[in-house]
Amino acid sequence: MDASASPAAAAPDPASTPGPGPVPPPAPVSRLRRLAVPVGAMAAAVAAFGYVAAVDPNEPGHYPVCPMLRFTGLLCPGCGGLRSAHAFAHGDLATALGSNALAVVGYVVLAVVWLLWTVRASRGRPLRIGVAPVYWWGIGAVLLVFSVVRNLPFGSALAP
C-alpha cells in the first residue's frame, strides 16, 4: 500500500488550501454613530416628559385611571407617577415627591444610567450592567413595602 492511498494523505491540509484569507478587523465606528442609540433614547424620554408636561394629568379625562386603583381601591407603586412626572417636568420637586417619591428616585437613577451609557458609548465601550438576583429581589421588596405602606393610614404621606 502506498502513502498516497492512506486516509491521512487524502485529507487536504487546511493551511495550504487557498481561501479568502484572514478576516480583516471591522472598520472603526464613528463617535456620532456610537452615540445615536443613547441620544435616541434620551430624545424619546424628553418627548414623553414633554407630552406629560403639556397634557396635565391632574385634569380628569386625559389619561386612563390605574386599573388597580379602579377595581380594588388600592394604590399601586406607580399611582401618581404621571402627576409626579408632570411636576418634575415643571421643576416642582416637592409636588413630584408628594405625588410619587419612588418615581422621582427612578427618574434620577435612569438619568445616571443614561449618563453612564452615553460616556461609555462615546469611548467605544459597551454598557454592561450586571444586576445580581438579590438586587432584583430587593427592588421588588421595596416596591411591595412602598405599596403596602402608602395604603395604610400612617403612610398617607406617600399617597398621591
Rank of each mutant, 00 (worst) to 15 (best):
M1K: 13
A9S: 15
D13F: 04
A15E: 09
G19N: 13
G21E: 03
P25A: 05
V29G: 05
L32F: 12
R33W: 12
R33T: 15
R34Y: 03
L35R: 04
G40D: 01
M42G: 09
A43K: 09
A43C: 14
A45M: 14
V46I: 14
V55Y: 13
V55I: 14
V55T: 14
P57L: 06
E59F: 15
Y63W: 14
P64E: 14
P67R: 05
R70G: 12
R70D: 15
T72W: 00
G73R: 07
G73K: 06
L75W: 04
C76Q: 05
C76P: 04
G78E: 01
G78S: 15
C79M: 13
G80S: 10
G91T: 12
A94Q: 15
A94F: 00
T95C: 09
L97R: 06
L97G: 02
G98R: 03
G98Q: 03
G98P: 00
S99D: 13
A101I: 12
A101T: 06
A103R: 03
V105C: 08
V105Q: 00
Y107F: 14
Y107M: 03
Y107N: 00
V108Q: 02
V108M: 09
V109Y: 04
L110V: 11
A111G: 10
V113W: 10
W114D: 02
L115M: 13
L115G: 15
L116T: 10
V119A: 06
V119W: 07
S122A: 14
G124P: 07
G124A: 01
P126C: 10
L127H: 02
G130L: 08
G130T: 10
Y135A: 08
Y135L: 09
W136R: 02
G138S: 07
G138V: 00
G138P: 03
I139M: 08
G140I: 10
L144T: 08
V145E: 02
S147A: 11
V148W: 05
R150L: 01
N151A: 04
P160M: 07
